[in-house]
Design a protein around this nucleic acid. Structure first.
Length: 794
RNA sequence: GGGCGCGUAGCUCAGUUGGUUAGAGUGUUUCGGUGACAUCGAAAAGGUCACAGGUUCGAGUCCUGUCGCGCCCACCA
């Protein structure tokens, strides 16, 4: 085959990237094949929240890291199923909409609100899709889902009904963590700790017989719901108070002082007061002392109810201010200290968590703890250390999973209640998805009380109720039921570490309860993209670098090049130098390709022909074979950062800096046999270089592959071409065991020229070298490569 | 308080089961217009491997302790 390749002088990055994006789409390069005999590789791609309006390099990083593996698997001969989902229901979208349109949820109707959410969702999906496309994320865009659409809703509702029937879901009234800002119940996973400075108020109280003591609290506003006061049983100061009755200021409530070993005598005044409302800690005190008459002050809208007496209608903040004033007025405040303590806050809005007694739906997870821990052993964790994070979380679980949210934009519960007796009425599975607010149950009468009036459940499901079904959802994105079975469990779950306790955990829960199986065989956990100073990237800190601008300045390949640098599970600082190096690598590849093209001279490529290889040819092929072996092993182990290092080292330091220099004299000379062996070697080696770079730098490698190798390999794209295996070259009697000595001699001559200020291209008469080399074997080669007329070993 | 991880060149990081003189990239300095590439090439300087003990013929690597940093969990009335 005669090779003749035209090359422009400069690589037109933008034009090239656009061209191949179009091409891949048109040729359906990344689409899943329904009738392929290849082994499957199924990816449970993380569905991002589409409400993110400030996509930054961190997003790019985590998605491209999974992508390196996917692209590798595709070239390795797997029939890759790489769908894309969008998580658009739930609080993140609602909050985003509320903020953007300055909406007060209580002043807008549910349908109006949902309409705006849907509009923003659509916009968000577009933004994501464009960005992913721009960065060459090779998902199969014909296999997408949105969690608000029919299939995911159907599966989430089926999941609810299945778990309900299995007795794993129940409805109960109990104190539940509550966000007064979002006005909804939350689950344990929605809560984060945050260090906050607060007032530590020392309040003076008296027993009935006028003995004085002081307690300290960070929650004075909850005083009307005080249900107990405790001291340590061995605290000499307070022993005499045990079982005495305190008359509370303002409310006049009478509280018995009790003993509790949990009280820390050296904290505050050593006297604790606790309330029914408030935080988790109060709840524990309350449970310890088996308080029967609980007093809940907070309404679900975050305002005080009638039990707060004169404070009714005030918010928590207002009440606190007012109560402190009132206490001061009656001289009941000893002092107020500032302390920093960590409080549970809602992770989406930072509001302090309160506990409100209310009726919610729960998934029983506490009783399955041991089984859920066992599931972790059946999954291959990368890195292995992340398994511990899962184990720690499961062990630390204290609450069942609260799955109902008092919000608008989410998946409806497939539940009606009998208006008369409250019996739960479920739809039939085949009728899913249902919006119970817009439809009626098929049965005409309540099976229990024969009433015929039903009301729909108003709450919506926790967003994780849907996303925890993602492996099931993706398996249903194809119609063929036989194939569906093969798509579950997935092969790979890529995700970030901070959602181990949510997405990963809940997915395992679902899979265990539904199928007694694991949802995925391998999980790869990526770290975060940090800013250049190692700080988390956030809009609030103003340190995020918009992805679009970077793309414009450096190109997709260059940014992916940076992203490859992360070790799995570890954070990666943004490093503009690495991006620049990526850009240089792209240009270098282009120029190497151009060098080959210029020197082809209509070379007749024949893979069967026996070329007369020289030492340098065999050397570079053996170095290449080592690189192939290492890169393959490292990709198999998800060590993409190492692959980058290895191929970089080979391409820059072995191929470009040495081999290309080694063959220039042969390409320019008139020994045809020698020249064609060099040409053949260049082509074979460069093709492998492109293939190993392909998962990392998809655009430039495709450009060069199409230009140079399409006819040789006859593939539509480098990305579905075969992953390289070792090159076999007939070695004959060539022994390269001492080739390194020749390289060392060449280094010495380069150094000599550099020190003498002579350009490397200038021919010199002679050069002294120390390296012991076989002059018969290598002198001609070294002299021609280094342009030295004679060599002298000293 | 419990757990996980980290501390190696100015900066960002490699360093597999202990084994010559501790590496790379980047930055700095010097030189170079050479048959693809100046977005390039050649070369140089730069390290008490956080600290202190220990095991060993031999420790960046293993053990113990100390200090500093990050994250997760728990505690915080």
């Amino acid at each position: 085959m005669i090779l003749k390749i035209d090359f422009e002088e400069k690589y037109n990055r933008e034009e090239s990237e656009n061209k191949w994006k179009e091409y891949w789409k048109k040729q359906k390069i990344f689409e899943f094949s329904l009738d392929s005999a290849k082994p499957l590789f199924v990816v449970d791609t993380p569905p991002p929240y589409v409400s993110a309006d400030h996509l930054h390099i961190g997003h790019i990083m985590s998605y491209s890291q999974a992508e390196f593996i996917v692209r590798y698997k595709r070239m390795k001969g797997f029939n890759v199923f790489y769908p894309m989902g969008f998580d658009d229901n739930g609080l993140p979208t609602e909050r985003f909409v509320e903020k953007k349109y300055k909406i007060n949820k209580s002043k807008i109707t549910k349908p109006e609100f949902i309409k705006i959410c849907l509009k923003e969702t659509e916009q968000g999906i577009k933004t994501y899709k464009k960005l992913w496309n721009d960065f060459g994320i090779s998902v199969d865009w014909s296999k997408t889902y949105s969690t608000i659409n029919s299939l995911p809703v159907k599966i989430a509702q089926w999941s609810f009904i299945d778990l309900y029937k299995k007795g794993k879901i129940y409805r109960a009234k109990k104190p539940i963590s509550w966000c007064v800002s979002c006005q909804t119940a939350l689950s344990q996973a929605d809560i984060e700790d945050e260090e906050k400075e607060t007032d530590f108020v020392y309040i003076k109280i008296q027993t009935k017989d006028k003995e004085k003591l002081v307690f300290a609290t960070t929650r004075p506003e909850l005083l009307p719901s005080c249900v107990g006061i405790s001291v340590h049983p061995d605290d000499e100061r307070y022993k005499k108070f045990i079982h005495k009755i305190v008359v509370m200021p303002i409310t006049g409530a009478e509280i018995e002082i009790t003993a509790d070993k949990m009280v820390a005598p050296d904290f505050g005044s050593g006297v604790v007061y606790f309330c029914s409302s408030g935080d988790k800690q109060f709840l524990e005190w309350e449970n310890n002392h088996k308080i029967k008459n609980k007093i809940y002050l907070l309404d679900t809208n975050g305002r005080m109810n009638a039990k707060a007496g004169i404070y009714q209608g005030l918010t928590i903040k207002q009440t606190r201010k007012k109560i402190i004033e009132d206490l001061e007025e009656i001289n009941a405040i000893e002092k107020i200290e500032k302390i920093v303590h960590s409080v549970g806050v809602h992770e989406r809005c930072g509001t302090d968590i309160e506990y409100v007694d209310s009726v919610q739906w729960f998934v029983d997870i506490l009783s399955a703890k041991q089984d859920l821990l066992k599931q972790a052993d059946k999954i291959n964790w990368r890195p292995d250390s992340m398994k511990q994070k899962y184990i720690d979380w499961v062990k630390a679980l204290k609450w069942d999973w609260c799955i109902s949210r008092q919000r608008y934009y989410g998946v409806s519960f497939p539940v009606w209640y009998c208006k008369k007796c409250g019996e739960v009425i479920l739809p039939n599975i085949e009728d899913l998805p249902v919006d119970t607010a817009l439809s009626k149950p098929k049965i005409k009468q309540c099976p229990k009380c024969e009433s015929s009036e039903f009301v729909a459940e108003k709450d919506v499901m926790d967003t994780w109720m849907t996303s925890s079904c993602s492996p099931i959802i993706v398996s249903k994105l194809v119609k063929d039921e036989e194939i569906q079975k093969k798509l579950y469990p997935c092969d790979l779950r890529p995700q970030a570490f901070e959602i181990i306790r949510t997405w990963l955990f809940y997915t395992i829960v679902k899979s265990f309860y539904h199928f007694n199986d694991i949802p995925f065989k391998n999980v790869m956990i990526s770290g975060h993209g940090l800013d250049e100073n190692g700080k988390k990237i956030s809009k609030r800190l103003g340190n995020y670098i918009p992805a679009n601008q970077l793309l414009k300045d450096y190109g997709a390949d260059a940014i992916r090049y940076w992203a490859t640098g992360a070790t799995l599970g570890q954070n990666l600082r943004f490093n503009i130098q690495e991006v620049k190096k990526g850009k240089r690598t792209v240009v270098k590849l282009w120029n190497a390709g151009r060098f080959l093209a210029i020197n082809l001279d209509e070379f007749d490529f024949d893979d069967e022909k026996k070329y007369k290889f020289e030492h340098s040819d065999i050397w570079i092929i053996s170095e290449l074979n080592k690189t192939i072996e290492k890169a393959t092993k490292d990709f198999d182990n998800y060590f993409y950062a190492k692959v980058k290092e290895e191929i970089d080292n080979f391409f820059w330091s072995k191929f470009a800096d040495y081999y290309v220099e080694f063959v220039k004299y042969r390409l320019a000379g008139d020994n045809k046999e020698s020249k064609s062996a060099a040409q053949y070697t260049l082509i074979k080696v460069f093709l492998v270089v492109l293939k190993i770079y392909a998962p990392i730098l998809p655009f430039i490698t495709e450009e060069l592959y199409q230009k140079m190798f399409k006819n040789i390999e006859n593939e539509k794209s480098v990305h579905i071409s075969k992953w390289p295996s070792k090159i076999k070259a007939s070695v004959g009697d060539i022994d390269i065991s001492d080739f390194n000595s020749a390289i060392k001699a060449i280094d010495e001559i380069r150094k000599y020229k550099s020190e003498q200020g002579i350009s490397l291209g200038t021919e010199i008469e002679s050069c002294p070298i120390k390296t012991k080399i076989d002059l018969d074997k290598y002198s001609d080669f070294i002299q021609k490569v280094c342009r030295v007329k004679t060599l002298k070993i000293i």
